[in-house]
Design a protein around this nucleic acid. Structure first.
Lengths: 238, 238
DNA sequence: TAGTGGTCTAGACCACTGA
DNA sequence: CAGTGGTCTAGACCACTAA
């Protein structure tokens, strides 16, 4: 198909995009029902959903499972070179952060986690699963895996707090070298259901391996971000 | 819908995923025709395409416009902190790079480009559009915009070469500070048609603003990567 | 409980690719 | 030219949300 050819899907995208960019639909505003929209554009729901899917891929709109389509708020700037943590980063950008702990327990480490934490086979690790919001919107699902040798009794603390702060104040451990790996992919089942979005929605998976001031691997994070919630910003010095 | 519920789409995804991961379909291998697959899974093409779309979102398979679906090759590691360029980066990872120049000319700068290059309104800039391949597969569409003051006559050179090398050898200009901005989004029309993929396919847009050894903004790149072709790797020192 | 989104069926025609 | 992917129609039922 030629790109300049008029196409129902493209036409719908353009029309909706225009409405959104001109602010006729306020950010975080809800779009009309799919059946209403398909009627409005004189097409079927399948076609209409194809168009919505493209706008979702662009990051202009997003959906909440069975609740409908919404205009995406601005992206959060995420700078891996700046040592910060979720709450500080969000607050600095005049947004409202929130964290909830989904689970926190000692679990047998998977093969993948053993490798990341440089632990022998069949090790146990602390697993902390959290969901995080910006301005009320669920944007991030994280699994933290901590080497238990360095953090005895950490499950007793309030884990909605920043782990960074907890490490420093309770264990005298600060972050040293950090390795980031960022992969554009789709949300897996558990992340998707936590963020209340459809399985297979586009996402950015960020894996962090954190060392302390002595160079020891202390923990790793598996982060699943809604793909439209962030942009990565890196300033490389001379 | 519950995530553990059996679903046609999920079942198809799992089945195909298994085949791919066990190497029954070789990387870069072509999948059977959609009609064949939908028959194989006893479903409709719409449903089958929904499943293929999810695997595409995960980065496991990709499509070439009207040519069919293929298994994705491994991702290229992209490290913004390492000063390198496309050909060197690809070759280092034992892959085969290739570049073709789509166009190279002096154009009036858009508002966006003026801002990025810190130029006054109505400036002219050199625009170089290129497409790049890894092992023959189109993975990257780039638009370079150069401040013409620093690169007189550059359009006369062979622009399939690395611009980095050209800057150094012909103009004595080396990169200093660089700013990266990476955004998960969808391919725009021109990028999509160049890469011969469907408009709206998931992509990673990387904007680079490059300064020279004196801190002057010399050029910027707008890169559109197939989302499944790379992963970003960043090592943050202590 | 009404309305909504999630999923699926069973076709159709067109434009393009590749032999 | 045959086969393929791209697009679209016109429905249907179910599970869930929100009132």
């Amino acid at each position: 198909m030629r790109d300049d050819a008029p196409r129902t899907v493209t036409a719908i995208c353009r029309a909706l995009q225009e409405q959104i960019e001109h602010g006729l639909l306020p950010a975080a505003g809800k779009l009309p029902a799919e059946r209403k929209l398909s009627e409005l554009f004189a097409t079927t729901r399948i076609t209409l959903r194809e168009a919505l899917g493209q706008l979702e891929a662009q990051g202009l709109i997003y959906r909440e499972e069975r609740r409908g389509w919404f205009v995406s708020p601005p992206r959060l700037a995420y700078n891996p070179l700046v040592r910060s943590h979720f709450h500080a980063m969000v607050a600095e950008q005049q947004r409202q952060p929130a964290t909830e702990v989904l689970s926190a327990r000692l679990v047998p480490a998977s093969v993948e986690i053993c490798a990341l934490l440089e632990l022998p086979a069949l090790s146990s690790v602390y697993q902390v699963r959290r969901a995080r919001r910006i301005d009320g919107r669920l944007v991030l699902y994280v699994e933290h895996y901590l080497n238990p040798a360095y953090f005895p009794g950490i499950l007793e603390f309030d884990l909605t707090r920043s782990l960074t702060d907890l490490y420093a104040s309770e264990y005298g451990i600060r972050y040293g070298r950090v390795r980031f790996d960022m992969v554009p992919t789709a949300l897996q089942a558990d992340a998707a259901s936590t963020l209340r979005v459809a399985v297979g929605s586009p996402a950015l998976r960020i894996t962090r391996i954190n060392r302390d001031q002595h160079g020891r691997v202390i923990d790793c994070d598996l982060e699943f971000w809604r793909h439209d919630a962030i942009h990565i910003s890196v300033e490389v010095p001379e």
